[in-house]
Write a protein that binds this DNA or RNA. Structure first.
Lengths: 214, 214
DNA sequence: TTTTTGGATCTTGGATACAATTTAAAAAAA
DNA sequence: TTTTTTTAAATTGTATCCAAGATCCAAAAA
């Protein structure tokens, strides 16, 4: 039931499928993505494939070179350091600008998501935890009127295997405790504190990940 | 002789043409970009048009909605504030990480570019100043090994009419004086100072621009 | 008069087939 | 063995066609 989400265009479906394949290592780093092969494999024509590859290029998952085609990007330790450094700052700014425009309904929804994540941890349901975590982060940014930075955050969180960080033992618990701290900062109406918490939250996840890689 | 640059693919040429048209207000904000019209006007088929629109979407110049097509994005005062805030931070990080890996040849080239810009100011040649300015900023970032942030900087500087800031009276002189200060920081081998200078340089340009808009 | 409904029309999304470039690899010649 | 030439593969681009969704306007109903 994983593919039950209804995409409005085929191109979006193709994008999601290829992205998933890259995350699951079906397409390995450095591997060339031949348009005709993909088209045949997915049972679609070349056109949605090409647009999908452009989208994935924007997300930083593949590299499209003129007349050479698309290649899966390999992720180095340095790439992860960069990613989390940038995410930390960008999401920090976003939530600081967002906070004062969040409604009490948003606050409740955030609380709800945190409780759900606690349950996901008990059930050891990784996929659901990842989903709820993404929803939490997205909702926290809702009030920010800056569009570019929100788009970047979305790309960053989609463009990298969001599952990986959660694979770290006991990482989920720590993560959700930090989420609860954010809710406190929200209640205290302290945007600067919230920003700091988010920045630390992301940097910590990044450091855990780089440690794990070695 | 403006279109004399030889692009490797037609799609890049189309992208550049449409981008130029948006900057020159030939396509006004909010205007719909109909694929067939563009194809007919540029004498190409629809495929390169579609890929070009995706690229422009990534640059933030157009918005592509499923089944509705592409629209030229309007730029508000807040968008400019956001843009320069982000650019300031991102380019700041980049040059700090870049500095120690710049060669003496790069240093000479930077010096050379500053002199060229002085000359451009005397000749009142705006286009050339803009070009040299972009080259200066790009070269200053050359040593940075972080790829994503460099790509973002490139997109930001391409995705917004780079000419506009330079239209501010006496802005070019001030700008180039700041470039000279950067070269000093480079000679002093002080990456943190260089970063601060770059951040201020960009923020100042942004503030000037928002003031001008009112 | 205002609202709603029902197409007619336009535009994008996608498929297919084919030509043209470019890259890369294999084969042949020096 | 090295260099050159040829050949094959892959991408890029063109042309055409059809289907699905969006837009808009006119006619019908409240």
């Amino acid at each position: 039931m994983k593919q039950s989400i209804d995409f409005t265009t085929l191109q979006e479906k193709v994008t999601a499928t290829i992205r998933e394949a890259i995350f699951t290592q079906t397409f390995k780093p450095g591997e060339r993505l031949i348009q005709d092969e993909l088209a045949a494999k997915l049972g679609v024509s070349r056109m949605p494939i090409r647009e999908a590859l452009r989208c994935l290029e924007r997300e930083g998952l593949v590299e499209v070179l003129p007349h050479k085609g698309a290649q899966v990007i390999g992720i180095s330790k340095e790439d992860i350091e960069e990613l989390y450094y940038l995410r930390s700052f960008l999401e920090g700014v976003t939530v600081q600008k967002s906070m004062n425009f969040l409604t009490s309904g948003d606050r409740e929804e955030l609380q709800h998501l945190v409780e759900k994540m606690d349950q996901d941890i008990r059930n050891n349901n990784l996929d659901l935890f990842v989903t709820h975590n993404q929803e939490f982060h997205t909702l926290l940014q809702k009030g920010c009127s800056w569009k570019k930075v929100k788009m970047l955050n979305k790309q960053f969180i989609e463009g990298y295997p969001a599952h990986v960080p959660s694979l770290i033992p006991h990482s989920m618990q720590v993560s959700n405790e930090e989420h609860k701290a954010m809710l406190e900062a929200l209640d205290q109406k302290d945007p600067v504190k919230l920003r700091q918490l988010v920045e630390l939250h992301i940097m910590r996840a990044g450091e855990k990940l780089t440690q794990l890689i070695e």
